[in-house]
């Protein structure tokens, strides 16, 4: 197994190569506004560092969110196009599951990432890291999270998440590790389809098509 993994559902642009047992290379940059610019150079870099030819990849694992849409789509369309061009399958992973996989906690916990608009994307897990609720989007104050929380979304709302531990954002190495374990166990991953969780804002901005400065 030789997986290329990446995720753009959180402020991190993260990419990794995984051989089924361990991470061969990983790149990680946090810049919520530059997913589009950073992702492909990161992918190129991790393959070089791992000494892996892209034509020997056996699959792609991509975080399918939930996450802010514009950045999220960068990862998904990149995965879809790479999968098509290289002729390899694309496996979707819930980004919150990948964060949970990395979390060092002993009891049940909640993963929360920033959904903006004063909301979080969240899911809860039991002590064995099996998802027990979510993924959903909602106001932190209206949730009933587990005692321990993980993720940048939890750090934003200390009143709702009093006890927060790392990691803040998703890591592609851990995402790849999660995917590798699931695949090795013969379990199906998700389709490469975004977990938007919200309907699109159906508002036509004023002067919607005027793309040229006057």
């Amino acid at each position: 197994m030789l997986l290329l993994a990446f995720d753009t559902a959180t402020p991190a642009v993260t990419a990794a190569v995984h051989d089924g047992t361990r991470v061969l290379a990983e790149a990680h940059q946090v810049d919520a506004r530059r997913h589009g610019e950073l992702l492909l150079p990161s992918i190129d870099r991790v393959l070089r560092e791992a000494g892996v030819d892209k034509h020997s990849l056996t699959g792609i694992a991509v975080g399918v969110g939930p996450g802010p849409y514009t950045g999220l789509r960068v990862g998904l369309v990149t995965a879809a196009t790479l999968g098509h061009a290289l002729g390899v399958p694309v496996h979707g992973v819930c980004t919150l599951d990948a964060i949970a996989h990395q979390a060092e906690v002993t009891g049940p916990f909640t993963v929360a990432t920033d959904a903006r608009r004063k909301e979080v994307y969240w899911a809860s897990y039991d002590a064995d890291k099996r998802r027990t609720a979510g993924p959903e989007v909602g106001r932190a104050a209206e949730l009933t999270p587990e005692a321990v929380a993980v993720g940048a979304g939890a750090l934003l709302y200390p009143e709702s998440f009093p006890q927060v531990t790392g990691p803040e954002h998703v890591s592609a190495g851990w995402l790849a590790d999660f995917a590798a374990q699931e695949l090795a166990a013969g379990r199906e991953l998700l389709p490469n389809v975004p977990l938007y969780l919200r309907r699109p804002d159906a508002q036509v901005p004023a002067g919607y098509k005027a793309v040229l400065p006057a």
């Binding site: 589009g36 992702l39 492909l40 992918i43 190129d44 892209k54 849409y69 514009t70 789509r73 960068v74 369309v77 990149t78 879809a80 196009t81 790479l82 098509h84 061009a85 290289l86």
Partner: peptide, 17 residues
């Protein structure tokens, strides 16, 4: 902006692959 980004990301992935 968001629409352009989908095409640019796809084109990069395709060209690189």
């Amino acid at each position: 902006a968001g629409a352009l980004l989908v095409g640019v990301s796809a084109a990069k992935a395709y060209a690189w692959a």
